[in-house]
């Protein structure tokens, strides 16, 4: 019954996302183009910020051995905020990109006998150096700092009902923007990748219960070094931007994937979501706000 309800909920939500897409497309066709059309996909000038807020729905898959050796899958909701700003063309890293996202997932196992909830907060920062810049294309790469915390709750476990994951890492960011026109309509395709290289991850040691950790202050073996072979996360964003009035509509497909073995337990979290949002360009104030 629960499974049927979940399936129904997913169907309803997918229908909802289709309606959102239809609404976005109708806005595109109805709103007259203005000055934004020439700005679609353009990199910000000095002191300028390109900000985007998106809402999304998608699919979540988790395997957290601390809670269960079985995979759980379900539906997820996402809200994200992206900002790309320019801080001086004479600098090595001219651009700064920030990405915040909050994800919430409700999942079931494939028998529908267990359920889990997952919440995840990501904060990624990237500093971009332009290595290719043409009229149609911008490619920038640079270092990135990534912070991710998440909590997973299994509704039927007893003393191990929940787990917390977190990592702070330094890594790599790549951002490629491709500007083009279809039937004279300006569009931009953007691909962004965040890849952590080294950092610190948090996980309890093997079967260590959070209750024991909390009660006896046994935190000694909860911080672990992470590297690409034990990668904490990976985030990829593919987006298509089109002008819509004074703003731009951004339709994106976002994928993030965490796979690690910390404290003797495997964790795999993957999310893929379809997102729709508005992009707006504005100038930073001179006082820095």
């Amino acid at each position: 019954m629960k499974r049927k309800l979940m399936r129904t909920a997913m169907t309803v939500n997918f229908h909802f996302s289709e309606r959102v897409l239809a609404f976005a497309l109708s806005v595109l066709t109805a709103v007259p183009l203005c000055g934004q059309q020439s700005m679609v996909g353009a990199m910000p000038q000095q002191g300028e910020v390109v900000g985007n807020v998106s809402l999304g729905v998608g699919k979540a898959l988790t395997l957290e051995e601390y809670l269960s050796p079985r995979p759980y899958s379900g539906f997820q909701y996402v809200v994200s905020n992206d900002r790309l700003s320019c801080h001086g063309t004479d600098r090595l890293f001219q651009y700064r990109r920030s990405h915040y996202s909050l994800q919430y997932s409700v999942m079931q196992d494939d028998n529908g006998s267990g359920s889990q909830m997952h919440a995840k907060l990501d904060a990624f920062y990237g500093w971009g150096h332009t290595i290719v810049s043409t009229q149609a294309d911008d490619l920038m790469i640079g270092p990135a700092a990534m912070l991710s915390i998440s909590g997973l709750y299994n509704r039927r476990n007893s003393n191990n009902p929940a787990t917390a994951d977190g990592y702070a890492a330094l890594g790599f960011m790549a951002d490629n923007t491709l500007r083009f026109r279809i039937a004279g309509y300006p569009m931009a395709f953007q691909a962004t990748l965040y890849l952590p290289l080294a950092g610190i991850g948090y996980a309890p040691d093997y079967d260590q219960l959070y209750w024991i950790m909390y009660k006896n202050s046994q935190y000694g073996r909860t911080l672990h070094f992470v590297c690409p072979l034990n990668s904490p996360a990976f985030c990829q964003d593919l987006a298509l931007s089109v002008p819509a009035g004074r703003n731009q509509v951004r339709v994106a497909f976002n994928v993030d994937y965490m796979s690690n073995r910390l404290g003797g337990k495997n964790t795999r979290l993957s999310h893929s979501s379809f997102m729709v949002g508005l992009t707006h360009r504005f100038e930073r104030k001179y006082n820095g706000r």
Partner: peptide, 18 residues
Amino acid sequence: MPISSELPNGWSVRFSSA
């Protein structure tokens, strides 16, 4: 101190861990 885990068919198992 007991913790829980699960079987492939969805049954849950609780057992002493600590």
